[in-house]
């Protein structure tokens, strides 16, 4: 059984087809990358899976259960957590409180929630920031916090929407390490990313979207050399090659 099975997912906004009958299957324990030019429908795809938008057509199954068009909070309770492209930190709450909100998804005990939150702040490398207000964190810390908060809901599938946009190379490296650690915890990841140097070595499989359609799905090495992908997204062939080389 696949962990996540998306079949023929279509999302239309008035006349615009943002997602055109997309298929995607994710196995337990994988890291799958979702790439494509701006406006190709990556975030829409996330939002359709997570119940933010109602799906026009198609189905989403998680662990064999039909979850199409479930409300967002039920999807989260069901075991899919997500982060936002534009960070959605709870600004007037401390880092610890932010993560505690996530932890309350699985417990009603405040002390237990605090324990879980402290553990996850430690895990995501923010232990000394726990009493800082969300609004006072740097963008890199906000992104980490968002991941910690999502993890606090104990997901089995984690959707990361551009968790590395706006980070400098050092921060990116730390973020990659964090993603690897999350995978080692047994959590499956679907990652939207623009930074090729990061996503190529990280993912086992890449899915490429262009104008709402899936144009390729393969291992990173072959994606880097795929004619259509280069034309639609990667641009110069050498750039893509260099990206793969550098990662090795």
């Amino acid at each position: 059984m696949k962990l996540l099975e998306v079949k023929g997912l279509t999302k239309k906004f008035a006349g615009l087809v943002a997602n055109d009958s997309l298929d995607l299957e994710i196995d337990q324990g994988e890291i799958v990358g979702l790439i494509g030019p701006n406006g190709s429908g990556k975030t829409t795809f996330f939002n359709c899976i997570c119940g933010v938008y109602p799906v026009t057509k198609g189905s989403v199954r998680f662990e064999g259960r039909e979850i199409t068009n479930f409300p967002a909070h039920k999807i989260c309770k069901g075991g899919i957590a997500r982060t936002f492209q534009l960070v959605n930190t709870l600004m007037n709450m401390t880092a610890l409180e932010n993560v505690m909100v996530g932890a309350f998804c699985r417990t009603t005990n405040t002390n237990r929630a605090r324990e879980i939150a402290e553990e996850l702040l430690e895990f995501s490398g923010l232990p000394e920031k726990k009493d800082i207000l969300g609004s006072d964190l740097t963008i890199a810390d906000k992104k980490r916090l968002e991941v910690a908060r999502a993890l606090a809901t104990k997901p089995r599938l984690l959707l990361l929407d551009e968790a590395m946009a706006g980070l400098n190379p050092t921060e990116q490296k730390e973020a990659v390490e964090l993603i690897r650690r999350i995978q080692r915890e047994g959590i499956t990841l679907l990652v939207v990313e623009h930074v090729m140097q990061v996503i190529m070595p990280l993912c086992e499989r890449l899915v490429v979207l262009d104008a709402g359609k899936k144009i390729a799905a393969d291992v990173p090495e072959r994606i880097a050399n795929d004619e259509r992908v280069i034309k639609a997204y990667l641009g110069e062939r050498y750039y893509a090659k260099r990206a793969t080389l550098r990662s090795e």
Partner: peptide, 25 residues
């Protein structure tokens, strides 16, 4: 100091984030 209080504050800050964290807003 309870779950309710944290959830209410989360809803005030961002309903979108609250929903994504399993809160039935």
């Amino acid at each position: 100091r309870s779950k309710l209080g944290f959830y209410l504050r989360a809803i005030k800050e961002s309903e979108e984030a609250a929903r994504s964290l399993g809160i039935d807003v």
